[in-house]
Write a protein that binds this DNA or RNA. Structure first.
Lengths: 348, 348
DNA sequence: TTGAAAGCGCTAACAT
DNA sequence: ATGTTAGCGCTTTCAA
């Protein structure tokens, strides 16, 4: 067991408990001699500080929580990894929990975190059902950073930190590009509009139509609450039955993530449509599938590493107490990676 | 802050500190009246136990660590998610750390974990450089489960818990299948043989050749220490230059994971080889790419959920103290999922 | 069954 | 600059 305590070190160095504590921590108000002796003794005895005891005194734990819907989702996993790396360098441990977007589980996790005195929290709420919980946590001293979700409302003077991805600009860029190629009927297949990313995407998509002065009926929205195999059926219907509301089949599709994209590609194949000749396709998110598919799929890409890193950075800022006037919003760019899946529509 | 302590509850319920503690915990040696009053008071005051303080006394934290090379790797991420779910249900929090297979980082993490008194540890060591560290942790009371890596050597009477995947049987099944189709020159593209999964795979691969009494030179090994874009070059060389050592180009390839598989598929395309007519392909690991590729790729599949769940289960067993004679090894099966990427070779 | 008291390992006043 | 002391919130002897 980690039998060796600060007490043993004090004895071995022939000084008092508090001197050891001071020497081991700041090193302020400690003579060089004692500092040296304590360091030597600690080293010799193999002393390891006990964070549990320290936590009890200082009300800090050196741990940070991370709450996402699903850590196994590659998008989240990459963010978590980047955040963990940054936080680890700063001496923090990362506690993770998947919530499945269940408000009850979010609350349970929040309670468990508070009970362990976690110093901070990265959270991507599944809804705003728990807004109060987050504000309470924040108010109670837990540093809080929202990740790619609607930021908590400003509370008079305080505005809560958040790292946001510019999905709107990304969607606009993709849509503009397709419009520029001559497409007039474009379908956007994405998640339901509950959460910020999809909402912003939809907004950007429609904005691009408005901006171009094109019949907005050509902007066909196809929202999926569960992306599983749904997309395949939806995409088939879209491609075969002449689009939504019979407004004509889309000549281009913007599809979210691996699952939906896969559904679309399969539907295109099943319908005898070839990409990009008969159908242009843009992937939202630069997944493995998009990169290695034949033809390679043009994709909207943003850096998940940057998201994780920025979130960790914002959190550390808070933890260090630099709260005041420093930056507490990050807006990360989305790029359109041009590949081989888009072409002018055959029939304009 | 969580201002309300056990002390407040005691006061509110008009009983002593220790009675509250007893009532809130086991409930043993507590009169029904007190139990009721305490519960009521705790509830009314919104009491939340402080795990930090409890930890200091009990030397347990209600937290479990998880050490993998990379939490963003989908294989690991899924395992972590499953383990987290099970552990959460049992009241534990999961602390994660990516090690990048760096022994030094593994050790740092182990120290950080011990300092926070984590009760248990799921670990997939990147080598056996730290075998001593793990054994020491285990000996010091941390429940330890090895995940899909070489188990720690038995130590006299104690055998350390581990959950293993039967990669050998999987590789054999795939190789047998290809041999049965008529293939005689098969390449295995996998990670280097340092760690158990690859080692076992290679063994199974070669065993299948031996078993069939086929020229073992046909079993071409192509080991990648970094799977990034290497595989593409390697695969190209393999397909163009007539195989390893000029032994003739392989008519089938078994490729590990998304990255290597993607490299192989691209190389096949670049070489003008069509799958499965000119080249059969088997994926090790049933990734999104394998499932949605055209043609769909025959794959070796094992349940990552089961791995995570089994690991958590083994750990909980230990944590509950059921250590003794209960099961402490799990060997999980690998299935061959037949799809459309394999066919008899054109020229036998 | 219940309460009083000690103490887990550490930090932070407070003296000196 | 250094030592002494008092807790942080909880569990756990030990008496009663």
């Amino acid at each position: 067991m980690s039998a060796v305590t600060i007490r043993d070190v004090a004895q071995a160095a022939g000084v008092s408990l508090s001197s050891v504590s001071r020497a081991l921590n700041g090193g302020k108000h400690v003579s060089a001699r004692i500092a040296r002796d304590v360091a030597a003794a600690a080293d010799r005895l193999g002393y390891q500080p006990d964070f549990t005891a320290r936590s009890l005194r200082t009300r800090t734990s050196g741990m940070v929580g991370c709450l996402v819907s699903d850590i196994a989702n590659p998008l989240n996993a990459t963010i978590v990894r980047a955040a963990e790396a940054r936080l680890r360098d700063a001496g923090y441990l990362l506690v993770v929990a998947s919530t499945g977007n269940d408000p009850a589980r979010e609350r349970t996790a929040a309670i468990a975190f508070r009970g362990r005195r976690l110093d901070g929290l990265l959270v991507a709420p599944g809804s705003n059902a728990n807004a109060k919980t987050w504000r309470d946590l924040g108010a109670a001293g837990t540093a809080l950073v929202i990740v790619d979700r609607d930021p908590l409302e400003e509370d008079g003077d305080v505005s809560w930190p958040a790292v946001l991805v510019d999905h709107r600009a990304g969607a606009m860029a993709a849509t503009r590009y397709l419009i520029g190629l001559g497409h007039r009927r474009i379908a956007l297949l994405t998640a339901d509009a509950e959460m910020r990313p999809s909402r912003e995407r939809i907004a950007g998509f429609q904005e691009a139509f408005a901006e171009a002065g094109i019949d907005p009926a050509g902007a066909q929205l196809c929202l999926q609450s569960s992306p599983m195999d749904f997309a395949h059926g939806d995409a088939l219907a879209l491609l075969r039955d002449g689009g939504l509301h019979g407004s004509g089949r889309p000549t281009a599709i913007v599809a979210l993530g691996t699952r939906i994209l896969a559904g679309v590609l399969r539907a295109a194949r099943d319908s005898g449509l070839s990409v990009p000749d008969d159908l242009s396709v843009v992937s939202v998110g630069d997944t493995d599938l998009a990169a290695v598919h034949t033809p390679a799929i043009t994709a909207l890409r943003w850096s998940l590493e940057d998201v994780g890193r920025a979130a960790a950075e914002l959190l550390l800022q808070r933890l260090r107490g630099d709260a005041g006037q420093t930056q507490n919003r990050a807006l990360l760019p989305v790029d359109l990676v041009l590949r081989d899946s888009c072409a002018p529509p055959k029939t304009i």
